[in-house]
Design a binder for these strands. Sequence first.
DNA 1: AACGCGTAGATTGTATACAATCTATCTTAT
DNA 2: ATAAGATAGATTGTATACAATCTACGCGTT
Lengths: 225, 225
Amino acid sequence: MPAASNQGPTHRQPVASKQQVVRGILRGLMEGLWRGGDRFTEASAVEKFGVSRTPVREALLQLQGLGLIELRRNCGAVVLPFGTDEVRELYAVRSILEVEATRLAASRIHRELVDQLMGEFTEIRARGEEDPDWRLDRTLHQSIAEASGNHRLLAEIFRYGDLVQAMREIVGERTSDIHTTSVDEHLAILEALREGDPEGASLAMKNHLDQASTSAIEAIQTLRS
Amino acid sequence: MPAASNQGPTHRQPVASKQQVVRGILRGLMEGLWRGGDRFTEASAVEKFGVSRTPVREALLQLQGLGLIELRRNCGAVVLPFGTDEVRELYAVRSILEVEATRLAASRIHRELVDQLMGEFTEIRARGEEDPDWRLDRTLHQSIAEASGNHRLLAEIFRYGDLVQAMREIVGERTSDIHTTSVDEHLAILEALREGDPEGASLAMKNHLDQASTSAIEAIQTLRS
DNA sequence: AACGCGTAGATTGTATACAATCTATCTTAT
DNA sequence: ATAAGATAGATTGTATACAATCTACGCGTT
């Protein structure tokens, strides 16, 4: 018997504690549980999530790195505002990064990759399917970020992509109606990339992210209503 | 300068441990102590810096957030490449953020602030002084980022500003010759901002950061030679 | 009564012990 | 001899105890 094989209330997965806290606090932020300027201590998070201080501290540091809270010496965590304005700003920064990545990618991305992605999107559209877990969407953004040729830019785009994905999943826990991924917007980006048109591709990406921003703001409002 | 005034082996400042590790590893990266792909364990860092695992872990998480190392479960920290290409990419991302912030700031920044900053830069230039600790430079970049009106964009610019400042200080520990801050480049930005010219200001910022990138690359090469 | 100071509580920073997991080597059966 | 599996070591994930620091309240002095 190599493993204890406990069934029933299995042992807490050690690796999940930190992400559980990150998710929980992010959910609280999105639901409007705290107002900007509110403070809470490590001890309160320990009690709320039932884990020890170590994963709580690491989770708070991660959230600070994501610009969602602020940690002050011996003063607890200060919750930063998180409303429609902040979501708009988040998508604005994401747009700055991805629009520039798209501009760079236009002259570097491989045509075969563009064709393959276009095929998958058109197939999805023909079947009337939905890409419910945003797998294709993420693949597209990731492929463009990689084609930018700047590893650090790719990393920053991933940072925001992971944050947006976490927000999507939290929204999905409550509202069954997930906004349909916009295949047409994606295809517009790919068509411009296929022609090697940096301005057209970056403009199409900007339009796509503006639409995504509006959808995200509506989702937050729905979550809080 | 307050001058730390460390006398004797006073009590270890509890708050300094984590930043000491961050600084030490960042210095190692800049000096080329490790090659990209090298791995080191928490235990080795504990031994190297003489602190416990807790601040080491938090330091590694911070460095991962800065995109300098990669943490893998039970596999230690993987050092990412850090050479001239990576410094160039770092400044490219910084440029993307700050150029857009400058464009946004052109129509929002207060004229009095621009005039005040121009006064301080011209005074520095008239006196032939140097702004050795980059205080004015940081004030300018911070003021522009604030004037962008996007708090998250400001935060991201701060993230890179702090990283660049830490790199400058590490370079300064070894090489007495610090590159002179380029007053003319700063004044070009401010003059365009004063006229409310978004394209001129953002172009001047891009030029300024391109020069800074070249200087940083030269500094790294000097540090390693 | 107002201000300064000191002490107690609270909170975070750090160190260490324990648990879970992974990697690599060694054994064993085919 | 090769490959599959088990076992031991190493490494990270988590929990807890201790140290340092900050905040706030109460006391004493002016």
